Simulated assay, not measured.
Amino acid sequence: MTLRPGRAETSTIGTRSGRVAELTEIRATRPDAIASAAALRPRRDTLLGPSGRLMLVAADHPARGALAAGGDPLAMADRGELLDRLCTALERPGVDGVLGTPDVIEDLLLLGVLDGKVVIGSMNRGGLAGAAFEIDDRFTAYDAAALSAARLDGGKMLLRIDDGDPATAGALEGCARAVSALAGNGLMAMVEPFVSRAADGRRHNVLTPEAMMRAISVAAGLGTTSARTWLKVPVVPDMERVMAASTLPALLLGGEVAGDPKAALAGWRRALRLPTVKGLVVGRSLLYPSDGDVAGAVDAAVEAL
């Protein structure tokens, strides 16, 4: 992994601690290098790859305090290791890009691994995992203006709908404003909708076909235009009926690290046959596979496309 701070110089420090130290040094002494790297990053012309599909690696979990992967509750807390795994994934053939919060995207920009990649910025990370206010998914990261200024390709937002919690109304309004602003800047708006419930002291997404059909129907109507809106959805039972709820292009999410990776791949393959499903956005399942083989997990997901 080669560090390219602002594309003005290069470094071949090979150790994880060395890369982290140099990233921190750039941030402390030359913070403008981040904007320089963003301004000079080669971009691609289209979101979809040559196959007509889109394969993104997701890394926006830490900013919401969701650090667990598999059986390790703090797997994503080591930023150097996360960056190593992201760079491995981004180097694999067929991987189109990444989804992340500003801190992660800016590290990757400085590392020079986002050339020609689709880069989606995560926007509302305020609903911290496990917090009493978790349903209040406020916009605390990128906004449309910042995404446009950084020459990124779109913004992603989480939309959890709880009919019994008034905070849902604010989340709906915030997402609608973001969809409109992103479209106004010519950027993709990626909406991840769920029906959500609080039970047993935790918040759960309701993954029934009926719940997802309702969530998709609400998400599709957000904003002043849906021209640039995409959906990010889980694989649930009866996906043909679920995806018939909208004509918007959709990407499948990966969710938790799968106990049975072969079953997860089979579910993706079935859903990818549907006309509105255009690809995958997968994070922990690929970055922290149970066997530790990041490259192998990514290659298997690409093959499913």
Rank of each mutant, 00 (worst) to 15 (best):
L67N: 04
P237S: 15
T46S: 12
S148V: 00
R197A: 15
T140K: 14
G254T: 11
D96W: 12
A150G: 06
L3N: 06
R273P: 02
A39T: 01
L40A: 15
L222E: 06
D162T: 03
V302F: 06
R7G: 11
A199W: 03
A68H: 06
D32H: 07
A189Y: 07
G254L: 10
L172V: 15
P209C: 09
T208C: 14
L110H: 01
A35G: 02
A33D: 13
D291Y: 12
L187R: 08
R160A: 02
P73V: 11
L248E: 09
G221H: 05
A129V: 05
A68T: 02
V233T: 14
P50F: 13
A63I: 08
A169V: 15
A215H: 00
D163Y: 07
P166N: 09
P249Q: 12
P234N: 13
T276W: 03
A167S: 12
N185A: 15
D115C: 08
N124K: 08
P42Q: 13
G164N: 00
R151H: 14
M76G: 02
G127Y: 02
T247K: 14
L158S: 00
R203Q: 10
A150I: 02
L56V: 08
I216Q: 00
A176R: 05
V104I: 15
F194I: 02
A297E: 10
A215K: 00
A227S: 13
R92Y: 00
A35E: 07
D136L: 13
A176D: 04
A211Q: 01
V191S: 02
V302L: 08
L222H: 08
G94A: 10
E240G: 05
G70W: 08
A21V: 04
A89S: 11
M76L: 14
L83G: 05
P275M: 04
T247I: 06
V242K: 04
H61F: 00
I120Q: 11
Y142D: 09
I161S: 03
T10A: 11
V277Q: 08
D143N: 15
D293W: 08
A263W: 04
R273L: 14
G292N: 07
D163S: 12
A295I: 12
L83R: 13
I161T: 02
S196E: 10
V195W: 01
S11Y: 12
R79Y: 05
A37Q: 03
R151D: 07
L172K: 10
L248Q: 10
M188S: 09
A131R: 01
W230H: 08
D163P: 10
L111W: 06
L48Q: 12
V20H: 07
A176Q: 05
V302E: 05
L40T: 14
L74P: 01
A250G: 03
L48T: 09
P5I: 09
P93L: 15
L248W: 03
T46I: 01
L253D: 02
A149L: 00
R202Q: 13
K232V: 04
M190L: 15
G127Q: 04
L86S: 05
A35Y: 00
M190V: 14
D293N: 14
G259D: 15
S246F: 05
A211E: 01
L111H: 05
G221C: 04
L111P: 03
